[in-house]
């Protein structure tokens, strides 16, 4: 049994760039199966926060714990190995491969089969890849070229890739950015279902407030690098400070 307690815990995280503080003393935690939204106006420090968690940049101060273990300052690869999956604001997939091959690649990496030089990659973990593609509804497109997928399909493929190593934490950066509003709910509902089924903690940033209030269990609000509010959708809606710095700014329409 995994230890109880939060999957991800962040304590006093801080980072500044050239004297400008991007993230100041941020602390929070995400529990197993929980959907936690991180919101804030542009430049609030969401992306920096994400990059600190996934290892792209090192924090100046503070610590990140995964299931109680310190992972601060580890490389993105090491953090991924410890069970953190990630999707990107602009989808990042392998365009010269099929949908299945994309997932196979993640599985090959997970099972440490990268340094294999003989047997075709196609023959590695094909069945497992289909199992991952199934729940995101991409199984029937497994043989298609990734380069010709619709954007919504790419997002779902990315989700399947991010789930390939059975992560305990999933980081989703603006998961619905660039999607048609009608599609957004579906993707997030899918993410929520999968997270619940597999007891994965999900931390996501999002511009679309309908999405945020629709799926998030809890919401964190960041402003100028500082955590200014935390709570359920209703609590956040009611928070005067949030209204002042964020919701009132007219940026609630979301998207780009």
């Amino acid at each position: 049994m995994k230890p109880l307690g939060p999957v991800l815990a962040v304590a006093g995280l801080a980072k500044s760039f050239g004297g400008v503080a991007a993230v100041r003393e941020v602390s929070f935690a995400v529990a197993r199966g929980e959907m936690l939204a991180l919101i804030g106006p542009n430049g609030a420090g969401k992306s920096t926060c994400f990059n600190l968690l996934s290892g792209q940049i090192r924090p100046d101060r503070g610590a990140v714990f995964l299931d109680g273990e310190v992972v601060t300052g580890l490389s993105p690869r090491a953090i991924w190995r410890r069970g953190v999956g990630r999707t990107f604001q602009i989808t990042a997939t392998f365009a010269s491969m099929t949908v299945r091959e994309n997932v196979q690649m993640a599985l090959i990496s997970h099972h440490r089969r990268v340094w294999r030089f003989r047997r075709p990659a196609r023959q590695y973990f094909a069945a497992e890849a289909d199992v991952l593609l199934d729940p995101v509804g991409m199984r029937d497109q497994a043989g298609r070229a990734t380069g010709e997928l619709a954007y919504g399909d790419l997002k779902r493929l990315e989700l399947a890739i991010a789930l390939a190593h059975a992560p305990r934490l999933l980081l989703m950066d603006e998961p619905t950015a660039g999607m048609a509003p009608a599609e957004r709910g579906g993707l997030m509902a899918l993410a929520r279902r999968l997270a619940a089924e597999r007891a994965i903690a999900v931390l996501f940033t999002e511009h679309d407030m309908d999405v945020v209030f629709g799926v998030a269990d809890r919401i964190l609000v960041l402003d100028r690098g500082r955590l200014i509010a935390e709570g359920s959708g209703a609590e956040i809606r009611a928070d005067a400070r949030v209204r002042a710095v964020y919701l009132g700014s007219g940026a609630t329409s979301g998207g780009h």
Binding site: F94, M97, Q104, M105, R113, W115, R116, P120, A121
Partner: peptide, 9 residues
Amino acid sequence: AAPFGHALR
């Protein structure tokens, strides 16, 4: 065509 080549690509 092997895993290494796919990883490279």
